[in-house]
Design a protein around this nucleic acid. Structure first.
Lengths: 142, 142
DNA sequence: TAATACATTATATTTATTCTAAACTGTTGA
DNA sequence: TCAACAGTTTAGAATAAATATAATGTATTA
């Protein structure tokens, strides 16, 4: 099971012991070159479909939060009833399609550097996120 | 009660009848030149402190949603346990101070136009929001 | 002013998330 | 091998924001 080494490494670096359940979560999140967006509910569904092991909600939440703290995942700043997470932790932005409830990456190169001239004394900027909401562009619609 | 005319007008244009409770909500939200941010909980608290009338949560939620639909209020796209709303509906952006749970306006002029080169077929951009998270800038902190 | 349509309210419901406490597991050291 | 311990998992309870419900109340209209 040498391919699990990277997962075990990620877990250890996040301060977590490598357990069956956590490695399974890693397999779903990190075992591919492609990055993706997900909600906790979706993640649990994927795990249930793929695995013969059961993972509780509490374990999923705990693990996700540890990965976010470590920087292996990002939370996407979006008003929604549930939180969206991103396995793409590089600096980038998002379209949010409100009609289809779908997130689409915008590569950093596709947005000019966001240059904020205002500063707050004693504070520094930790992150800058752009969310562009998109809707259908039907001519027929008003 | 001539000063209430503007509130009655806003309510009617939002498709709502002007009732005591709704006018009270308007007084809190719109009876000042200054714009501000609020959560539902904060709004209810302000109303309770100012008014001798009782307004139920359901009425507050319904009224706020009608105003958002009409464009008299904006929801601020922020991951938080509760939603934040803004009486400033002009195009602008926000700092979010995670340590103090505080929103600060960034005037449109203080951010260069966000120019997104990527497009999605059949979709048009409805809104673009920038959220810059800020934290303390202590030298003592790592 | 009567009839109607819409509002308000308290309460129940829903749903995401967090908490809890008991049972479990893996590691360490004797 | 086993006891002890620290950390894990889990089901279910708790929490809290937001929404739905249904009975009662109020504004509007003709």
């Amino acid at each position: 099971m040498a391919y699990a080494e990277q997962f075990i490494d990620k877990l250890r670096k996040s301060g977590l012991r490598p357990t069956k359940q956590r490695i399974k979560i890693c397999e779903v999140l990190f075992d591919t070159d492609k990055t993706f967006h997900f909600t906790i509910k979706e993640l649990v569904k994927i795990i249930e479909n793929q695995a013969n092991i059961k993972v509780s909600l509490a374990t999923v939440y705990n693990t996700i939060h540890a990965f976010i703290k470590k920087g292996y995942l990002k939370e996407i700043p979006l008003n929604a009833s549930q939180s969206y997470y991103d396995t793409n932790v590089t600096h980038h932005h998002h379209f949010f399609d409100e009609e289809e409830n779908r997130l689409i990456d915008i590569h950093q190169d596709d947005v000019d550097e966001v240059n904020i001239k205002k500063t707050i004394p004693g504070k520094k900027i930790k992150s800058v996120e752009v969310i562009a909401k998109i809707v259908s562009d039907n001519q027929s619609q008003k």
